[in-house]
Design a protein around this nucleic acid. Structure first.
Lengths: 221, 221, 221, 221
DNA sequence: TTCTAACCGAGACGGTACGTCTCGTCTTAAT
DNA sequence: ATTAAGACGAGACGTACCGTCTCGGTTAGAA
């Protein structure tokens, strides 16, 4: 579905200029007309390419779009592969989640991102590719920052870091996808706070000893 | 877009049998062929109805599907509109989230649910209808249970309950939509635990005021 | 394949304006680009019609062209359904065959006629329709004239009139189709003469018992 | 367009095996799928040859097919280049035309022959090549036999022999191409009889100067 | 009870896009 | 330099649906 700079089997006779023109056209068009109205015909026309050249290398318009994102992410992923680390995990997470909010609110990426996300929903194969090539690298970066916080004692030692990542980012992604509420910097802050401190009261007052003292879980921590 | 039992303007001469046949056909077909390949033609044919009868009452296939869900939810929502309350919020949430996991993993609802969710992503108007008619009622039920827990001192008094709902349910919905990991009962449990207790260590409240005395990472800050 | 003014099953909901536009466009286009390069797409575009409207009513572009000819022939067949009859069969046949020559040499009909004739060659079903709707009516007219000549004693009483028609017209059609020689009025005349008088010498001298002395043909007026 | 045994410019570096494979594949394929569905791609694939090798040496699929026929006719034309001559032209012509009927009815040659004939109809250049290389040689053979009959006094001395050939063979070719009637040995016989004896009554030479007295036509010759 | 207006099933219509096929050109690698 | 192989831009194929538009045939209220 994708193509590296060299030595892949399909790299044989492939026209690199056509490939790039197709991915660029696809990304631009999805932003203009949305994924539902995005057509292979239009991509081919915009890219100045025969339709068969698209069908030859991609099985669906979803995979074209995916490769378009891949190209984009490779372009500006060359820089820093790490999250900020000031030593204060809460502040750093707020910074990062606010940046995520800004990105999701960016009009240029809104439609393409929605398109990619909804295609993943319906195409397990594409979802796997997405998980491997785009999602996992970003998750690792996030996990790395959380691990350092954990090692610094700022996060519970037992916490599953993948779960932690999901606890932090899922609310944002869900609000954005489903438009169930405003997606703001304040929201990002409150998500970070809630995720870090938990929903329970922090006072040692055995809050759960009244009304159902059972099921305690006092041992943790 | 929807139809009440009486007195709505569109209730005039409408053929109720056709309406039900259309919604049933739409729901069945989306489970068989997926939303992308669902066509008005096929719905009309399956329902034994003229195409115009669909176009007369619904503006898009997304809204047809939405009404199909509405019909379904009205059918079996007649029962109890409340979450279990044993007095132990953690146990109750685990019960509920496990049920959510089961529902999302139910093959019969998988495709239709995904279809509805992705249509919402692209259609703000539909998203609003969804929020009002389907999402909000369920959120209120969840919020009610959390409020009782809050009043019982099992949840922090400051917590925004809508945020709490999102913190608890978003990770599940995200895993399901994006298939970024297995969606199991254990996962539900751990989400509940993490959300309630937070990611930070509970012992020393000051843990984030001082840094790094443990396990190295001396260089940072 | 064809359509009468009323009461045919397919006449039901059919749009007569579209039908005529399609046939006209097909006839014009085949004259412009030839049958091989004639495309359904182009016919539809020229006629201002959806492609499906063509596929709905005709199984192939050959049948479209056939109906175009039918429309044309119905248009100007309203007049005289008989060949000239001056009492002199030889003179009349020369008149008619010269007219045939002129028609075949008419640039406006050349390509369409060739197209129709070659389609018939490859499509037996179309050939049957052609035989019934276009060829047979003309053959009957020709046969009628020959029959009157036969009754007048100008043609042998034993002669099969269908065979006679073929003997007279086939050479013209063949020259035209295969371009094996010039198609002129003189050629028409000589075909008529040869067909009427035969290739044998007319002298009663048992011409095939001895050789070469004859050279006769004195009787020919 | 064609290829001689030696010394032609295109004979230079040409791969003779490929040429034969192409012509054989073309002939076989046209018999299997018909000319309309015959594609250069398929010929190349069947012949195990690159498409360019075909485009390099032939301008159209019609010319490929033509060369295929040429190859075939050269293969079995090595034998006798003359028509039978028993001294009885009528009997000999019947023999020959019956053979022609058999050939046209041969299923193996039906499609390819039709293909070649219809290509000639639309392609004047190909028609010229056909006339020169295939048609003319056969016409000369026929003409030769007719000339001997003419010299023997069995045919009218004035008769244009080319016209005579056309009078005899055109009806057969036409029936075959247009399927306007059964193509049988009897038909061949009657064509020969009609062409030789003419359509007019042979008895009273003046029959066309007066009209209608007879109706009798007692006996031919 | 008749009239009449809207709804209904059916499906033709002008279109767009599909995914496939073939065209004729061009490029590559291997003789 | 020619070949087999096959990618390429182009564009027609025949199909599937789109959303609109009649067409008769119900089906209800309103007259």
């Amino acid at each position: 579905m994708t193509k590296q700079s060299k030595s892949l089997p399909d790299a044989g006779r492939r026209n690199e200029a056509s490939r790039k023109a197709i991915l660029t056209a696809a990304f631009d068009l999805v932003g203009e007309v949305g994924f539902a109205k995005l057509s292979i015909e239009a991509i081919a026309a915009r890219a100045g390419v025969g339709k068969q050249t698209i069908y030859r290398w991609w099985p669906s318009k979803g995979t074209v779009l995916f490769d378009a994102f891949l190209m984009l992410s490779e372009d500006h992923a060359s820089g820093d592969p790490a999250l900020p680390d000031t030593g204060d995990i809460e502040a750093d997470l707020k910074t990062v989640l606010r940046a995520t909010v800004d990105e999701l609110n960016d009009a240029r990426y809104d439609e393409p991102l929605r398109a990619l996300n909804t295609e993943i929903v319906h195409d397990p194969e594409l979802a796997a590719a997405y998980a491997e090539r785009l999602h996992e690298p970003m998750r690792r970066i996030k996990r790395d920052r959380l691990r350092r916080a954990q090692e610094a004692g700022q996060l519970d030692a037992d916490t599953d870091l993948d779960l932690a990542v999901e606890l932090l980012w899922s609310p944002l992604l869900n609000r954005w996808l489903q438009r169930t509420g405003p997606l703001t910097a304040e929201y990002a802050d409150r998500v970070v706070e809630a995720a870090l401190h938990g929903l329970r009261p922090r006072t040692e007052a055995a809050s759960h000893t009244r009304t159902g003292q059972a099921a305690g879980k006092p041992s943790r921590g």
